[in-house]
Simulated assay, not measured.
Amino acid sequence: MALTATPITPRFGAELSGIDVGKPLSDADFTAIKDAMNQWGVCVIRGTGFDNAAHIAFSRHFGHLETAPAVKNRPRRHPNTPEIFDASNLTPTGEILVDENMVLHKKGDRLWHTDSSFMDLRSAYSLLLAYEVPKEGGLTYFADMRSAYEDLPADIREKVDTLQAEHSLWYSRLLAGFPITEEEIDGRPKARQPMVMHQEATGRTAIYIGSHAMDVMGLPRAEGRALIQYLIAFATQPQYVFGVSYEPGDIVIWDNLATMHRGGDFDIYKERRDMRRTTVREGEPPEHADDPFTAYFSASAPKN
């Protein structure tokens, strides 16, 4: 069967059907999926039947996969498959997370953001697979940053075309209530990113911003943050946003260079939400094995 893309909104998001992604993909099948991603920015595939290995194998079609960081005193939930990033509210032993610092850290994921914008090596695609979902809530919300760019007032669009912002994971955590100061954040790694991204495959341009963005280069801090907040508020108006609900086995793929997203609320202390993500690096694969996320968290560790 040929791939069918059923739009979620007129300009943004689609559910894909017609291709069994549980079987090896032909080049033509993957080209059809990639074309759908270019057009819609976010694509949902229901009932994949994937386990960790199949999730990873499918994701490799999109490019080089990052590995989840190895953080001191915090073991990976999936040590045998380091390409799997844990997006759950569970501990490594599978219990509901109650550690307040970790809860506050993960709370930052409920702010509008784009994955890994705080890294010099940007993420292109994210592929999030559902294993367990809460009875209520727990959606993922997406914002159409290409349409938002196209609809910006002309003077704002012209302004952001030439600007860059500095991004820090820890700034979004501060916004979410994590116990860290701006002085500590200023001493940790940041990444400088353009505030717009041009997509060669479609000729479209997207706003590239989110809660990790803390400063606009060349502007006073207060003015830069006011611009960041304006852009996030503009891009998350109802006409640019939709939410994805899940059943186990559903996967959602999004283009980090054309979207923002955030996790939706649910009862994190009573409901289990086991979501697992692979992350595809932008550009060509590295010549040698690397582990930039582990290096990032090592450089972010408090200095004694």
Rank of each mutant, 00 (worst) to 15 (best):
H261F: 08
E271D: 15
G13C: 07
V280Q: 10
F266V: 07
E132I: 09
A201N: 02
R146L: 04
D115M: 03
N256E: 05
T67R: 14
D250W: 00
Y240G: 02
Y149L: 05
T81V: 15
H105L: 11
A165W: 03
M37A: 13
A70Q: 14
P220K: 04
S147Q: 14
T162S: 15
A213F: 02
P82W: 04
E200P: 08
V216Q: 08
V98W: 08
G108L: 00
V98S: 15
M217A: 15
A143R: 12
G263R: 08
A54M: 13
L16Q: 02
E15V: 12
Y269Q: 14
E15Q: 12
G63N: 10
P286S: 13
Y125S: 04
M1V: 10
F142G: 06
A191V: 02
I228T: 14
R221V: 15
S211G: 04
P153I: 04
G283I: 10
E15N: 04
P79M: 07
L111P: 05
F12Y: 13
A14F: 02
V216R: 06
P292R: 12
K72T: 12
G18Q: 05
L121Q: 10
A206N: 02
A191S: 10
Q229P: 00
R221T: 15
F118I: 05
E247A: 14
D290M: 13
A295W: 01
E150K: 13
H198Q: 12
A28H: 01
F293Y: 11
E136F: 11
I209R: 04
E282N: 08
G264N: 09
P7W: 06
V160D: 01
Y230N: 01
A54V: 02
T294G: 07
T140N: 03
I96R: 02
V21H: 02
V241Y: 10
R157C: 08
P285S: 08
D267P: 01
